[in-house]
Design a protein around this nucleic acid. Structure first.
Length: 258
DNA sequence: ATGGCTGAGCTACTCAGA
């Protein structure tokens, strides 16, 4: 089973890139973040034509997440946490892998910049609630996959120049500790688990030639419950979509389980 | 380099992103 996570920075502006990518990679499930559109303007038909169901938690202009899947997904929910600002940042569902029932959690964590503002407080509060609800969920189901745009640089090697981000909402110790707290509930950051020292990124700014200079950061992650490790086959950051015309500033991360 | 690019909403220019 191939599950992919991608912050597309507008599903409508990116629809041709996304459809071409699906044809190349043939995912079973595609988790999208930053769709930047409401449910009623989501391009359901484009995905339906190539054989995918769409489950959408949209929002006008900003944020928004969706699950695109070849098979129907059970128990879709948009209420994993109560969002203080009513922003559309989480959609969950349940899938089966062999005999296991897995809860799939697709997230778009608040950016939180600038620090020392209500935006940063919102990010901290959001992560706190998220971690609490993961703890609760683990009591019902110990098979979880959390994927998406975390807006967290886990370690120094996950960004081209850590000094520039150590007091940023993506790199602050206080935020990285939240990530560590989440992992300590029984997850592996599966990319880092399989690539102990590798420097690969999932995001590059649009400006200042960041892509060409490889001034990027690894902020999109797949966290899987440790008891799902026996199903692990591969994890890959696919840089190809970032090199295409009119790219998203993020590139997809691809997980294969069997 | 706390914004040099991009997208949405809208149709001039702001907000947001990381």
């Amino acid at each position: 089973m191939k599950i992919i996570s991608w912050n597309v920075n507008s599903v409508r502006a990116r629809i041709n890139n996304i459809l071409n990518y699906i044809k190349d990679e043939n995912p079973d499930i595609l988790l999208l973040q930053e769709i930047k559109t409401q449910d009623q303007t989501f391009p359901y038909d484009s995905f339906k034509e190539i054989g995918y169901f769409s489950y959408v938690f949209g929002q006008k202009s900003y944020n928004g997440v969706a699950i695109i899947s070849k098979n129907k997904i059970n128990k879709i929910s948009k209420e994993f946490i109560k969002d203080n600002l009513n922003q559309s940042r989480i959609i969950t569902g349940e899938i089966f892998l062999q005999n296991k029932n897995i809860t799939l959690i697709n997230i778009y964590v608040p950016n939180g910049n600038p620090v020392n503002t209500e935006k940063y407080d919102y990010k901290k509060e959001w992560l706190k609630k998220f971690i609490n609800n993961i703890k609760k969920k683990l009591k019902q189901n110990s098979n979880l996959i959390i994927a998406g745009d975390f807006n967290i640089i886990p370690e120094e090697l996950d960004v081209f120049d850590f000094k520039r981000y150590e007091d940023d909402a993506l790199g602050r110790l206080e935020i990285r500790k939240k990530y560590r707290e989440l992992l300590n509930l029984g997850f592996e950051d599966i990319y880092r688990f399989k690539n102990k020292k590798k420097c690969e990124y999932t995001f590059w700014d649009y400006f200042a030639g960041s892509w060409q200079k490889n001034y990027g950061m690894r902020i999109d992650h797949f966290l899987i419950s440790k008891n799902l490790l026996e199903h692990f086959f591969s994890i890959k950051i696919n840089k190809k979509p970032r090199s295409k015309p009119k790219p998203s500033d993020h590139t997809p991360i691809e997980l294969v389980l069997n």
